[in-house]
Nucleic acid binder design. Sequence first.
DNA 1: AAACTGACACTCG
DNA 2: GCGAGTGCCAGTT
Length: 114
Amino acid sequence: MKRIEPDAPPTDFRAAVLAVVARIPKGRLASYGQVALLAGFPQRPRQVGMVLSGLPEGTALPWHRVVNTRGYVPSRGRWWGAMEQIGRLRDEGIEVDDQGNLDLEAHRWRPRGR
DNA sequence: AAACTGACACTCG
DNA sequence: GCGAGTGCCAGTT
């Protein structure tokens, strides 16, 4: 996997994705496709996941608010991290199941209108 | 340099 | 309405 090195300059795509994620309000959820579209890359939902997968642990970005359209957090190889993510989402007032399932439509982030 | 895999999404059956 | 298959781009091996 790709390591995030401080000396490695972030690509525009990564910067755009991170910027969109940073815009997600507290208690709101956004899907990968949603983030990709807002970032300006509607055909790249998978790359968004790769970017988030490479985020540092001390990142201030609410990456835990980004889920797939199913309303589920895969967290491949980081189920333990997913559990921590679930706790954070619950703390924001989002109903999350122990399996990582949640109601995406109930907390869909609605840009433009607000 | 080429092929496979991957924090997904959409369309077809 | 649910399940399986295909498509997209970039990174990794």
